[in-house]
C-alpha cells in the first residue's frame, strides 16, 4: 500500500499555483524550520475575490500537496468563501491523508487565513480576530 493517495501524489508531483506573487496584497507564512515545515501563501485580492494565489512550501510530500490543493480550492473564490476553507476540506479533496499528516492540511488552512488577515491589516479593513485561528509557533520541537 502506498503511503499517499493518487491525488496527494499528483499534487505533490505537479503542484498547482507554485511560486510567488510579487505584488501580492496578502501574505501568510506558518510553520517553522525546526519542525520541518513552512508554508507561505501569496494572495492577490481584487474586488473581494481571490484573483490569484501562489504558494511556497518547505516540507514533506503531504505538506506540498496540501498547499497545492488549498490554493486550488480558493482560487477565483470570493473572500468570504476562502475564509470558510477548512483543513477537512483540503484533506477530503486529497482523498485523505495518513493520520500523522493531518497536521499538513491544518497548516494549509492556517496559511491561507493568515494571508487574508494580512490583507485586512494592510488594507485597514476591520475584522473580528475571533474569526482567525491563533497562529501559534509549534510547540513540539522544543527550543
Amino acid at each position: 500500500m502506498a503511503l499517499y493517495s493518487d491525488k496527494v501524489m499528483d499534487h505533490f508531483r505537479n503542484p498547482r499555483n507554485v511560486g510567488v506573487i510579487e505584488d501580492a496584497n496578502g501574505v501568510g507564512e506558518v510553520g517553522n524550520p525546526k519542525c520541518g515545515d513552512i508554508m507561505k501563501i501569496y494572495l492577490k485580492i481584487q474586488d473581494d475575490t481571490i484573483a490569484d494565489v501562489k504558494f511556497e512550501t518547505f516540507g514533506c510530500g503531504s505538506a506540498i500537496a496540501s498547499s497545492s490543493m488549498a490554493t486550488e480550492l480558493i482560487k477565483g473564490q470570493p473572500l468570504s468563501e476562502a475564509l470558510k476553507l477548512t483543513n477537512q476540506a483540503v484533506t477530503e479533496a486529497l482523498d485523505g491523508l495518513p493520520a500523522h499528516k493531518i497536521h499538513c492540511s491544518v497548516l494549509a488552512e492556517e496559511a491561507i487565513k493568515k494571508a487574508v488577515k494580512d490583507y485586512y491589516d494592510r488594507s485597514g479593513i476591520a475584522y473580528d480576530p475571533a474569526d482567525f485561528p491563533v497562529f501559534e509557533d509549534c510547540d513540539h520541537c522544543g527550543e
Partner: peptide, 26 residues
C-alpha cells in the same frame, strides 16, 4: 539546507532511486 527529506525521497523514488532520510516525517 532548505529542503525536507521526505519530499526528497519521494522525488528520488520517482526517478527510480531508493534511499532513506532522517527527517521527522520519515
Amino acid at each position: 539546507e532548505g529542503i525536507e527529506g521526505e519530499s526528497l525521497l519521494l522525488l528520488l523514488d520517482d526517478k527510480g532511486i531508493c534511499a532513506s532520510s532522517g527527517s521527522a516525517c520519515t
